[in-house]
Computed example of a mutant assay.
Amino acid sequence: MLEILGITAPIFILIGIGYLSARGRLVSPEQVLGMGKFVITFALPALVIRALLEKPLAEVFDATYLLAYGIGSQLVFWAGFLFSRFVRKDSLSGSALAGMGMSVSNSGFIGYPIVAMVLGSPAAVALALGMLVENLLMIPLALAIAELGRQNGGGARAALLDTFKRLLRNPIIISISIGLALALLGVRLPSVPAKVVDMLASASAPVALFVIGASLAGLRAGGLVKDVAQLSIGKLLLHPLAVMLCFALLPPVDPVLRVAGVLFACSPMMSIYPILGQRFGLEGRCAAALVVCTVLAFVSISGFIGLLT
């Protein structure tokens, strides 16, 4: 147990430092926003490029991993969507957001720092693969369905087109494209650019955790017990269990990557979850779920680390 706490405690201490800094007004919301943009725009893309160039592409790209993580995430998404829609009688938009909250992890800000502490460098490879699933499959699907509940006629087509345009400008997707292109061409960065990439990549984990804590300072979780309970159980328990089941049923994957995939699935939902929910009038529900899931993740992630290791 002490070994597990040695891995998870520093993660949540950094989140706590960010939270207290924001509550104590040592950092402003604008500064937190700037740090978050730094992570998304520079640090995480550098991390992805470094991961894709560290090893031959054949060792980085793992179709079975993508399949297991994608199918596990889809199973939980549709379970959450159908439960919300037909059992809880939620709206189409609300059901889609519930499914997304249960099946899309905060891979960059929480998942990667945790997996990196547990497994080391393979965490970056799993991050790149997992973000392909999240950015190209899970998020566009959820937003397109949510738009159907908000508009008639060409709503879904417009939502898909807008999502595709955003993906083309997404720094993570751009970095994956650059990294894959360089890896396919067998290009290795010269020493100076490689050092810059390495320095940016090393900054991603601590800054990301600080930003998560600071972002939680302004959120409140009250009056939404049923919604929060569904999202917490789905995200922190069902998602990692579904991914674990898919890894067990599909052809064998590198055991290290298998552990990484399950731990990424253990992470709470994305930090921008309330922002996505705002478009559909669901920011209160999404913010409450994000607060509770992030707090409970300390217990659930510790449990899965003990189970897997």
Rank of each mutant, 00 (worst) to 15 (best):
E3P: 02
A9H: 10
P10F: 15
I13F: 15
I15T: 07
G16A: 14
Y19E: 13
R23D: 03
V27I: 04
S28R: 12
S28K: 04
S28V: 00
E30W: 00
Q31W: 09
G34P: 00
K37F: 15
I40D: 04
T41M: 13
F42D: 01
F42Q: 06
L44I: 13
A46D: 12
A51W: 00
L52G: 12
P56Q: 10
L66I: 04
A68Y: 02
G72T: 03
G72P: 07
Q74F: 06
L75F: 08
L75C: 02
F81K: 05
F81M: 12
L82T: 15
S84L: 14
K89D: 14
L92T: 14
G94V: 06
A98K: 02
M100L: 13
M100K: 03
G101L: 01
G101T: 03
G101S: 09
S107T: 13
I114K: 08
A116C: 12
P122F: 06
V125G: 07
L129S: 07
L129D: 05
M131N: 07
L136G: 02
L137N: 07
L143A: 08
A144Y: 01
L148G: 08
G149T: 00
N152R: 12
G153T: 09
G154A: 14
R157S: 13
A158S: 12
L160W: 13
T163W: 01
R166E: 10
L167P: 09
I172W: 01
I176Q: 04
L180E: 15
G186L: 04
R188Y: 04
L189N: 02
P190D: 06
V192I: 14
A194M: 15
A203N: 10
S204E: 11
A205Y: 01
P206Y: 01
F210M: 11
I212S: 07
A214N: 08
L216K: 06
R220C: 12
L224Q: 12
G234R: 05
L238E: 07
P240W: 08
A248W: 10
P251A: 05
P251Y: 01
P251R: 05
D254W: 00
D254M: 00
P255T: 03
V256T: 12
L257D: 11
G261S: 12
I272N: 11
Y273S: 10
Y273G: 01
P274R: 02
I275P: 02
G277F: 09
L282I: 00
R285E: 00
A289K: 06
L296R: 03
A297P: 07
F298H: 09
G303C: 00
I305W: 05
L307E: 11
L307W: 03
T309M: 07
